[in-house]
Design a protein around this nucleic acid. Structure first.
Lengths: 112, 112
DNA sequence: CCCAAACATTCATATATTGCAATATACCAT
DNA sequence: ATGGTATATTGCAATATATGAATGTTTGGG
C-alpha cells in the first residue's frame, strides 16, 4: 500500500530530474523565450528542446504563448524558482558532505 | 554543451522522483527508524526498503547509525523537509491548474 | 562454532526514458 | 497554391531504472 500522493509527487520530482529541463527552467528565469531562442542559448537541437518543453508543459511547469509562427514559453509559477534555489542550497550541502567524506577517506593512505 | 551542474542537480531531483523514497523520507520526519520498522510501517519488503535507503544514502539524503544487528536511519539534513513542503505547495497549485483545465474542456460537450 | 535476526547486495526480467533522425504541422508572405 | 520558417510529433535503438526473488554479510546469542 503505497500512497497515491507519493506517486504523484514522484512524478513532480521526476519532471525536474533531467539536465535539459533544469537548463530550460533556468533560462526562463530571465523571462519569456521562444523555442528557437532557447535552443540557441542552450546549444541544443530544436526538437530536443521542444520535447522537453512538452514535458514541462504537461506537468504544469511552463506555459506557452503563440505569436505568429513562434511559441514563447514562460515559467508557469515563479515560486518554482524559490523552490529550485532552496534545492540548490541543500544540494550544495550534500556535495560538501560528500567531498568531506572523500578527503577523510584519502587521509588514511591504507583504506581499511 | 550542457552544464555539469545541471547534470548533478538532475541527479538530486531524480533521487526524489520515486514514491518509495518519498515515503521513506516522510516516515523519517518523526525521527530515526530502523530498516525493519520502516519496512513494516510502509508495508514493503525489507530488501526494497533497504535498496531505496541505499540510494538515499548515496545521494546524501539520509544517514545511518548501526546499533547491534540493526541499522537506524535518519534524515541527513532537516531542511530537506522545508524543501519537500515547498514542493508540495507548488505541486498542489499545479494539480489545481490541471483540474481547472480539465473542467474547462468538459464544459464544451463537443470538443473541437 | 552454529544459528537466527537484521540488513545489504545481486541478478534477471520488465518497464520507462533518453537521444536522434525523420517527418509532420502551423503560420506567414508572395 | 507555393515556399520558407518555427515548432511539434513520431519511431526506434540504446540506455537506465524498477521490481522481485534469491543470496550474502554482519552481529549477537547460546
Amino acid at each position: 500500500m503505497e500512497s497515491a500522493l507519493h506517486r504523484f509527487k514522484a512524478e513532480f520530482f521526476k519532471a525536474l530530474g533531467h539536465p535539459v529541463r533544469l537548463a530550460i527552467l533556468d533560462a526562463l528565469r530571465e523571462g519569456e523565450k521562444s523555442v528557437g531562442r532557447l535552443a540557441e542559448e542552450l546549444g541544443l537541437e530544436q526538437p530536443s528542446v521542444s520535447q522537453q518543453l512538452g514535458i514541462l508543459r504537461q506537468r504544469g511547469f511552463v506555459e506557452a504563448r503563440k505569436e505568429g509562427t513562434s511559441v514563447h514559453y514562460r515559467a508557469a509559477d515563479p515560486d518554482v524558482y524559490t523552490f529550485l534555489d532552496l534545492g540548490r542550497a541543500i544540494f550544495e550541502r550534500q556535495l560538501k558532505t560528500q567531498s568531506d567524506l572523500l578527503s577523510e577517506l584519502q587521509e588514511t593512505s591504507s583504506p581499511s
